[in-house]
Write a protein that binds this DNA or RNA. Structure first.
Lengths: 210, 210
DNA sequence: GTGTTAAAATGGACAGTGTCAGTTTAAGGA
DNA sequence: TCCTTAAACTGACACTGTCCATTTTAACAC
């Protein structure tokens, strides 16, 4: 009933009913993504769940594409935070760092299973969006700097190694999310398959020419 | 004007105006996929291009999903033919065979760029469709039998190696098609990057423990 | 030839979508 | 107190996939 409420009021610009509809819309969009998949995230459904008119989101997102891009940026930011944290303090153990990086991506992609897929749907989001690109670069840079820090003589370009690692991680996740692979253990190593597939690649990178 | 025409007529069932609208629809659908991407493939657009009413396709495909699945099966069949042909006569040269298999996938995915993507859109097609699954298995089996034929002692399960190879191929293609990677040459080997990324993996598979 | 029949093609309708236009509401500054 | 302006509203539009009743069409039995 005093300065606190006053401040809150002062932050609201003219015409606003919610404190900040944009934040509410992003939250409801993410909720719909988790519960119904990306096709459940319609402008009108988001507006319904937020309790506003079907055209209210247009004031905050000029198109559905922009709204989905904003949701994807949030998801990317979370992935970037997790991967960067996972490889911290593993700079001198590149093989472990690669495994930790990959493991983080796997867990992130499989746990709430609809989020990861949105990140790569070019028809739905604008991958040139600056906010999105920044977060995407943070993930890729984490992997790249991890390879730069170690002392191994790379037979191919460091960027090629990074692309190889990322391609395998992303490819395996994509196939799993599409339902083409199932979670399984490798028959020889008894490791979960997502760990086992990295073995050959890491061997190829770190033990070649030896 | 004789038995040949008669046979053609006898094949047509009652009510048909086109010789076989189903085939025409699949052709127009593929054409729209190539020219406008998967979002251009609407039932009504396919019907328009085929010169029939918007509801005519319903007689041949009970839903859009089924129609897209049929298109995807055609695409998969072509990929299967190409990959199987590519590894023929390379049974005793597994490394070359992997490269040939991968190269075929790359070319197929990049040349008309919209076809490959449809194959993995679970929201759009039914990957449990028998016709589709059969063609999908032909591709995977080509890779799997290629690994089974050679005499290398695998440190991991053969299926794990197959999944690793396929994950990398599929992951790289996906990222390229999404616009996240660009065609480039590896700075060290001077190979196209899509060839270079396979090097580490093949090294890891065929030269480990040596 | 003449009906009969059943598949195929038709036009119309429906709910849902993204987007746009015009209108109303409400907060903050003059 | 009035005015400005951003936000939210109602309503409409074209488009989509899907369903419906109807009509057309070609093969078959007689």
């Amino acid at each position: 009933m005093d300065s606190f409420n006053l401040k809150a009021k002062q932050k609201r610009t003219a015409g606003q009913k919610h404190g900040d509809l944009r934040i509410v819309l992003l939250r409801e969009g993410l909720s719909l993504l988790d519960s119904q998949g990306v096709e459940g995230v319609t402008i009108r459904a988001v507006a319904r769940n937020a309790g506003v008119a079907h055209s209210a989101p247009a004031n905050h997102f000029p198109s559905k594409r922009v709204m989905l891009t904003a949701i994807a940026a949030k998801i990317f930011a979370e992935l970037a935070d997790l991967t960067i944290e996972a490889v911290t303090d593993l700079a001198d153990k590149p093989e472990q760092a690669i495994q930790a990086f990959a493991e983080t991506c796997f867990q992130f992609a499989f746990d709430p299973p609809n989020r990861y897929q949105l990140l790569w749907q070019r028809q739905l989001i604008d991958q040139d969006d600056p906010a999105l690109a920044t977060e995407m670069d943070r993930v890729y840079s984490a992997l790249l700097s991890l390879l730069r820090q170690d002392q191994v003589k790379h037979r191919v370009d460091i960027e090629t190694d990074a692309i190889a690692i990322w391609s395998m991680i992303h490819g395996y996740i994509s196939m799993r999310l599409d339902g083409n692979f199932v979670a399984a253990k490798d028959a020889v190593t008894n490791l979960p398959r997502h760990k086992a597939i990295l073995l050959s690649l890491i061997d190829g990178i770190y033990y070649r020419d030896s």
